[in-house]
Structures are given as C-alpha cells and as structure tokens.
Design a protein around this nucleic acid. Structure first.
Lengths: 168, 168
DNA sequence: ATAAACTTTCAGAAAGTATTGAAAGTTTTA
DNA sequence: TAAAACTTTCAATACTTTCTGAAAGTTTAT
C-alpha cells in the first residue's frame, strides 16, 4: 500500500470513529492529518489536504487546541501560523478522558446528586424504583470518575500492565 | 424535590449524555424512562411519557433491544407488548462496552492493521512519521480492546476495587 | 373468515449540525 | 501611515439525522 493511500484511509477511519463519539468528523480528520504529518502544517495545507474551506479549518483547529490535542506554533521568519498535534497517544487519551469527564461526567453526577433528594415514602414503589436506579447509576459514575482520575495520572504501561496482569 | 420533577430531570440528563456519546437522544430518554419505571411499559405509555410518536418509539425501542438494554415481554391475558430495561447498571455498562467495541473499536483495528502495511523507505520522514503514529495508536487500541474483554467478564466490585486499590 | 387490536414501515417534514466564502479584523512590514 | 499578509467571524446554505403519522402488515379472538 502506498503512503498516500494509507494516509487517506487512516484519516477516513479516524473521522468515522470521531463522528460515532460525538466529535465533528472534520475535527477528527484534521487531527488525523496532523498526527501523521512529520511537520507542522499551515491552514492552507490543511485546506488542501482535506478539501475544506478556510473557515472550517479555523473553527475545528480552534476546537482541537481547546481540547489540548493541537498546538499553534510560529516559524521564525514566517508570519503564517502552523499547527502540530500531540503525538504521544497516551497523552492524547488522557487529555480526551479528562476533558470528557469535565464536560460530561461531572454534570451528570451533579444531576444525580440533585435528584437523589427526591422526597419519598419508602412504600411507594415508584419512589423506590427511582431511588434504586439512581443509587446504582451514581455508584457507577463515581467509580468511573475515580478511575479516570487515576488513569490521567498514570503511565501507560503501568496502567494497562497492571490491569491486564491483575485479570489474567 | 417531587418524584415527577426528579424523573424528568434525570431523563433529560440521560438524553443529553447520550447525544454527546453518539447515541440518539430519544433512545437514551426511553432508556432512562424504563430504568426508573417500577413496571414494564407499553408503547402507548412511552409515547405519553415522552410526548413522541408511535413510530419513534418503535424505532428506538428496537434499537435498545438490539443493544441488549431492553427486553420485550408479554403479560398474560394482554396482547400489548411491554418493555423493561435491564436494571443492573454494571450489566448495562458491560453490554454497551461490548457493543461499542464490536461496532467501533474492531473496525478501526482492522484499518490500522491494513495501513500498517504501508510500503516504505525508512529514510523517508513521511513514511517514518506515519508508521510511528500508527504503531502507537495500534498499541493503544489493542490495550483498550483487551481491557474491555477483561471488564466484560468481571464483577463490578472486583473490577473497580482492584483498579482503585492498585493506584492508591 | 373477518374484524379488532396491535406493531411495523417509510416517505416526507422538521430539526439539528456542519460548511462555505466573503467581509471584517488583526498584525507585520516597509 | 498604508498596504500586504494573514486570521477570524458569521449569515446563508448544504447536509445529516431524527421524527411524524398515515398506511400496510401481523396476530388474535370470535
């Protein structure tokens, strides 16, 4: 397989994966493009590489920077801005986990906390069913939350090594 | 807080979470509704509970059944179909993990395998950057894959207990 | 066999999301 | 200071996904 073909297949696949995880397809594709590029790329180059507009590049690159997955940099003697992706995949994984925890898990935990305060007669089966469900979900969410905390401080080999050894 | 209010807040939050994870909002809401209901519900009841159409209920319930999160059941002497959600959240988590692994992780692993076969001169920095990236992502994906295998066979307390103890 | 009770389908409508591209904004150079 | 070289914004548009509801399909009871 030729490099150009391999690249485009990978970019395609990364975009598809992203869109199944609530991430804009183009954003994931830009990320993929930068991941496999040996050098920083300019907005122009990204536009050409993916056949998308300037505005689209700008928006999605900004979002990637926001997630901590891409950095902006300047080359001496050049006024263009260039973009590089964080290449360490474990670092990428941790940043995504941290970000999603903050944006998604934490808000849900807050709601779970609130709705736990449902007033109630223990004999009402509706109240009981609700409480039981919420308690279970809350425990699960708290476990996930703690696990992410731990993971985002760990080294990759240690983390997976330990888990996989444990359950062998 | 009153039960009705708590329920609707929870359903709302679950729907929002779902949509951020690439799951249809309504599907997540139906799931939430069934999760907190003490009894199986009919299509009619779901329609009323969420103010959605018959077709919409049918489609999304089918999808939930497909994911193994909801079961169809019949009450004796009643020709309507009723639906119940799996209430054990650890079981739910494992089924979702298994399903997403199959639908998303495995296809990506296949592509990574394929594009690893890029032909290449080791001196070409483009080839080298591509290879390095793909190798890293592949290793990460394989670790995730194995971890899910292990998790989907484990008991909740054992799984989280062990991880959290390990990193304390 | 047929009517009633229920479920499924699916084309079109509505809602939601992403993209473009031209205009406005900013920074640098001369 | 002015113009060139870039970057950012955003209203309009295109695209994608979801939802509706009426019609078609299926099952059950008599």
């Amino acid at each position: 397989m030729k490099l150009s073909e391999a690249k485009s297949q990978f970019i395609q696949a990364w975009g598809t994966l992203g869109s199944k995880w609530g991430i804009n397809r183009t954003m994931a594709q830009i990320h993929a493009l930068l991941l496999v590029s040996p050098d920083p790329m300019s907005a122009e180059e990204i536009m050409e590489g993916l056949n998308i507009s300037r505005g689209n590049v700008n928006m999605n690159v900004r979002e990637l920077i926001d997630w901590g997955l891409v950095d902006k940099l300047h080359k001496p003697g050049d006024r263009k801005e260039y973009f590089v992706a964080e290449k360490d995949i474990w670092e990428v994984t941790k940043r995504v986990a941290r970000e999603r925890k903050k944006r998604e898990l934490e808000p849900v935990l807050k709601v779970l906390e609130q709705v736990s305060a449902v007033e109630g007669d223990k004999k009402d089966r509706n109240v009981k069913a609700f409480r039981d469900s919420i308690v279970g979900i809350k425990r699960m969410a708290e476990n996930a939350d703690k696990t992410i905390d731990v993971m985002t401080k760990a080294d990759e080999n240690w983390f997976f090594g330990s888990i996989l050894k444990l359950f062998r």
